[in-house]
Design a protein around this nucleic acid. Structure first.
Lengths: 237, 237
DNA sequence: CCCACAATTTAGGCAACCCTAAATCTGGAG
DNA sequence: CTCCAGATTTAGGGTTGCCTAAATTGTGGG
């Protein structure tokens, strides 16, 4: 695999921080497919940066500093705008844009990105539904949840899908799912091993396993003010 | 300055070979702004490649092998298509596209270039008038000559300009010159120190020194047999 | 024909990445 | 409160580039 740059480490830290406030060396290494020792080395470098890009306490993980977060978001902006370009203008399928953008994001200048954003009409989301940080690097709040944890019986919309695994994206497409797709969770088998879905409109059916259900993010369609008092099917978490 | 990759060495060798069949270490090093020792090192590596990318005789310079030339042309194709894109679609001024393309050419995939070429309508020339190798890496024969050596008194057209020096490009623009510009060499002072030009139509005048005159390539207007290929899309800004 | 000088290569180092194998911590089970 | 397994870091190397300084070598002028 191609070598991983400092920028990739910042991006990875940013993504991982949304799950755990402190990111462990191992989690970082696994995310980037490098050896733990390589992650340690880079964390030391990032912490030694002037100004520091991470707070790093050996053996206790790391967090991005504001400056580190700023740099991470700049790259994420580049990445997602490039994905829009690759998809909308060059016509790449959505399972191919990630890998291509991954290489380009390190090569494009800020000026390039300014012009590209203007050309694309300052899009707010990438082809997988991830929000694109604005020029000021702001992001809208997250309002979707993994399909895996979505309540059954209520109408949902697909808002976002993970993009790192092309195979996953292809499977999602094959299931007839796409951004904006409406669906309802009909039934979940014990331990969330399988989710039975009804796609709307058209009433198609689909069954997804937990890995897929964790990679698809949905939102309720009629934003509920009052949760239905009727006893719902038991909710697993 | 950013680090220079193996691909850059191949490109440099390709360009330099059009001047001297055998390229010296020093010429290569100067072209890439690296120390001679760095060029020596890379020549050894390129010659040790499997298959060899250069024929290298220590102390007597190097030549590209067919395989090396093929790789060089692939990158040049990427570079020039990217320049067209940056200029025509993103609106970069023509003195800025080279530097940007220089970074991007190493990051884009072949698939990206296929799609980009289609989007652009398979252009034959980059914004500076350099021919773009086709997918088969073929190039049209060179039919232009440096303005410096153009005959006086006959109508000429600007066909191509060197692109490595943004300052030069800016000066060319300021002089009122652009691709397709018609002109006549009125007079050359001894030793080609200065060329007096008449621009047509409009009859403007310009005086250029030898450096500029060597960076501008022209062709006589009443073309011998072959009609000039379609000029690249509109002129730069 | 020789020798000095310019061109080139060699020697020895540095930076950013990577890895494996061998220490060394840390935290949770008992 | 101990002890161990897993997590992490350290040690020692590798690769692609780059550089300076010190040999070399080839060649053109005398």
């Amino acid at each position: 695999m191609p070598t991983v740059s400092m920028e990739d480490y910042l991006k990875a830290l940013y993504h991982l921080e949304s799950r755990t406030p402190r990111v462990s060396t191992t989690a970082l290494a696994r995310w980037l497919h490098v050896a733990p020792a390589s992650a340690t080395e880079m964390l030391r470098r990032l912490a030694a940066w002037q100004p520091p890009l991470v707070h790093y306490t050996p053996r206790h993980g790391a967090t991005l500093t504001p400056e580190g977060r700023r740099l991470a978001l700049r790259i994420i902006r580049k990445h997602r705008l490039l994905e829009r370009f690759l998809h909308d203008i060059l016509g790449f399928p959505w399972d191919a844009v990630h890998a291509e953008a991954e290489r380009l994001e390190h090569a494009v200048s800020d000026e390039f990105i300014r012009r590209l954003a203007a050309l694309l009409g300052d899009p707010a989301y990438d082809p997988h539904g991830h929000p694109i940080p604005g020029p000021d690097l702001h992001l809208p709040p997250v309002t979707d949840t993994p399909l895996l944890h979505a309540p059954p019986g209520v109408p949902l919309v697909v808002k976002r899908v993970s993009d790192r695994d092309p195979g996953l994206l292809r499977r999602i497409t094959e299931l007839g799912l796409h951004l904006g797709q409406r669906l309802i969770v009909l039934e979940r088998t014990p331990y969330d091993q399988l989710l039975h879905l009804q796609l709307e409109p058209g009433g198609g059916r689909a069954v997804v396993g937990p890995r897929l259900a964790q990679s698809i993010f949905v939102q309720q369609v009629e934003p509920p003010i009052t949760p239905p008092p009727a006893a719902p099917l038991e909710a697993h978490r």
